[in-house]
Design a protein around this nucleic acid. Structure first.
Length: 283
DNA sequence: CACCATGTTCCTTG
DNA sequence: CCAAGGAACATGGT
């Protein structure tokens, strides 16, 4: 479920549920998600540790913990990859098929499950250092954004997926932000004017914020056993998407543009789908 | 069987 | 050293 808004909503969900809880036992079903931490080191660090807090950085989760008797906190880094989920389940509930890690917390278990195992739950937090600014970072100005775009000849859609430019935008919201900004996804990043860069950054912020607001207000099922823990499509669990549709271009190839009625087009850039309206998105 | 899928990293190539 | 392109990772859905 992973772009910045999904991770932010998950963090808000997990934070109060985890804070203060102590890990009684650790079960690792897939070593690969711990990489580069070994299973032995992971278990040794986590068993007996208490959750103190949870922060989001880009699409990553940073769990802060402390071991009993220690005065030094340490961090656990989580990433959902393409198909990861994290949630609490009653202690007697059977583990889902693709459970990668389970932490016993008493009445409930914390479960990280991931069908494709592209995600991470690890003691190695170094990935954070490579990230660019948060979209709403006060020190991140449109001028900085414009300057960073200037250094690349890649299509702007592809550049938006670069987590060192601005962190948190993924394949879905990149298409959505460009549609709202009226900018073609094929435009070279270094050809955007300052005004266009300002506009695009504003649209990135708006699209992400709207998704966070949506995920914060509709009921969500985070559990792997439930039908839907996602909210890309802005629908409450079990409800249709008829009037709650929020994505204006993503996965809408051939359907009419909400602004001009022309069919939405799908193209492939850097081996990923891009959706856009060729009439509304030019400069 | 074919192709598609919310992400990141590693390996080439220029 | 850097930018850019593509494969790899692994599983499931249509």
């Amino acid at each position: 479920m992973p772009e910045l808004p999904e991770v932010e909503v998950l963090a808000r969900h997990l934070r109060p549920a985890l804070t203060g809880k102590t890990i009684r036992a650790v079960v690792v079903r897939r070593n690969r998600v711990l990489y580069p931490t070994s299973s032995a080191r992971f278990k040794k660090a986590l068993a007996g540790a208490k959750f103190l807090g949870l922060q989001r950085r880009g699409k990553y989760l940073l769990f802060e913990l402390r071991r009993a008797g220690s005065r030094e906190n340490f961090f656990l880094l989580g990433h959902l990859g393409m198909t990861g989920r994290m949630f609490l389940a009653p202690k007697n509930e059977p583990l889902p098929k693709h459970a990668a890690v389970m932490l016993e917390l008493g009445a409930k278990n914390f479960i990280y499950e991931d069908t494709r195992y592209f995600g991470r739950l690890t003691l190695d937090v170094s990935a954070i250092e490579k990230l660019g600014p948060e979209p709403w970072d006060n020190n991140f100005t449109p001028e900085m954004f414009h300057r960073a775009l200037k250094s690349s000849r890649q299509p702007v859609k592809v550049k938006l997926l670069d987590q060192t430019l601005v962190t948190g935008v993924g394949n879905i919201y990149a298409s959505e932000a460009l549609f709202r900004a009226g900018i073609s996804p094929r435009r070279a990043a270094n050809r955007l004017t300052l005004v266009q860069a300002e506009n695009l950054l504003r649209c990135v912020r708006e699209v992400l914020q709207a998704a966070i607001d949506c995920g914060s207000t509709i009921p969500l099922n985070f559990s792997a056993h439930q039908s839907d823990g996602l909210f890309y499509y802005g629908r409450a669990v079990g409800a249709g998407d008829f009037y709650t549709e929020r994505l204006l271009v993503y996965d809408r190839a051939g359907k009419p543009c909400v602004q001009c009625g022309a069919p939405i087009r799908r193209i492939v850039q850097a081996a990923r789908s891009t959706f856009f309206c060729a009439y509304c998105q030019k400069g």
